[in-house]
């Protein structure tokens, strides 16, 4: 995974598929769980992008819809956008795009809790 861009309320992460990411020995389709992990990472990064700080967060829930198969020979991009941010919660939407397709291969929406164990951390580190 590589960070492509973090700007405003958006984070974009890219991934080049490898054979160990495939869903089955018989086909070169990327396992949905890889898309899931990619979305989880991109969503988390979008929380940091919008919040402009690196206090710890935790995924509360993440829901993915796998719209179409993701080909194993095309790079993936996860585009995560923070829809709303409060002191405690962040709502994120994520599209996963397969290089060459105009429509996403998967979409997801996640809810994150902010500042989990964060105060403890910061107190320990003596920051802020």
């Amino acid at each position: 995974m590589r960070v492509v861009r973090v700007e405003g309320n958006q984070a974009i992460i890219g991934l080049s598929p490898q054979p160990w990411m495939f869903a089955d020995d018989d086909c070169e389709e990327i396992c949905t769980s890889i898309l899931y992990s990619l979305a989880d990472s991109a969503c988390g990064l979008a929380v940091f992008a919008e919040a402009q700080e690196l206090t710890p967060i935790a995924t509360l829930d993440l829901r993915m819809d796998y719209l179409r198969p993701a080909a194993g020979d095309r790079d993936l991009l996860a585009v995560a956008t923070c829809l709303h941010l409060t002191e405690e919660i962040a709502f994120i939407h994520c599209d996963i795009l397969s290089n060459g397709d105009s429509q996403p291969v998967a979409t997801g929406s996640g809810t994150f809790v902010r500042n989990t164990d964060g105060q403890r951390f910061q107190a320990a580190a003596g920051e802020k």
Binding site: C31, Y36, S37, P56, L62, F121
Partner: peptide, 19 residues
């Protein structure tokens, strides 16, 4: 996924559930 806690990456748990 989080070296400070340390905690497993949420995506890996998603993979365990899906598989």
């Amino acid at each position: 996924g989080n070296f400070m806690l340390p905690a497993l990456h949420g995506g890996v748990l998603g993979a365990l559930i899906e598989i």
